[in-house]
Amino acid sequence: MAQSLRTATHRTPRPGPAEPPSVSRRTPTRRRPFRRWFSQTGWRHLVGIAVVIFAAFPLVYVFSASLNPGGTLITANTLFGNLSLRSYVDLFNLPRQPFAAWYVNTLFIGFSASAGSVMLGALAAYAFSRMRFTGRRFGLITILLVQMFPQLLAMVAIFLLMLSIGEIFPAIGLNSQIGLIMVYLGGALGVNTYLMYGFFNTIPVSIDEAARIDGAGHARIFFTIILPLVSPILAVVALLSLVATLSEFVIASVLLRDPEKQTLAVGLYQFISQETSQNWSIFAAGAVLAAIIPVALFLGLQRYIVSGLVAGSVK
């Protein structure tokens, strides 16, 4: 994902300046008086520290639990009382819980579903943003409304659907990762489309017009001009869909049956779902490793998410 975005950026016919002028102009001098530093950025660090504590604290518990084999989750008063990597080692050596396979599956499913969602969503958002057609408003609201249906019972319908699909095409029916990805793509049009739509709207139509005058067809305008310009939102949506896929549990657990095919969320859950054989430490270790995926993706995409690319090129 990140790779394709990056190359797309390089192909941009009108790339933004290497560094947006608005940013460079304001680059602070090395030595600022403390008060000025504080009023400009210092207080932001205070906010940052507060938020980091709020955000990370519960997770510190989890991390601590992962280093405490045989322990439980609520080791409140003895954080990091024990530091052992045994749970991490065990995690990869369980014959019936193929953690490594789950990891690979999750990467495959997560990235496919996320890339697909971004693509489908961007196509739709472009249509909604740039074209005027009957049913446009209605369509926009409908895709949001559809997602508002209480999902309490969705599984019944989805299972049934995949069962029927599997009767015709076993490769994409029950117990198939492709099938699961397809189900996830069902949610591609939705809130994320709206998010992209809003962003597309901020790209001046004059850019499209100029390209069209230059003789570019609609597909070329979309793929080579518009998409690179909206990369921040594509990155955000990619991340959002990836996280949603990673933590999705219910559909995956019903559709994927073989332990070899399951995802991290489903597999890890087995460690704690049985009241009588809960293994918090291994579960926590697995969760920590699982969280690396979105974090890495966020790191990779961060410069697109907060690139200032648009500010630099659209004027």
Binding site: T72, L73, I74, L152, M155, V156, A157, F159, L160, L163, S164, F249, V250, I251, S253, V254, Y269, I272, S273, E275, Q278
Partner: peptide, 27 residues
């Protein structure tokens, strides 16, 4: 935590219930 886990279990079990036969409507 026992009961909490019990709770997630029942919940996911019920949510993930798989399906019924819509055989009445299909073939």
């Amino acid at each position: 935590m026992t009961v909490n886990t019990g709770r997630i279990t029942t919940m996911t079990a019920l949510l993930g219930l798989g399906a019924l036969a819509l055989t009445s409507c299909g073939s």
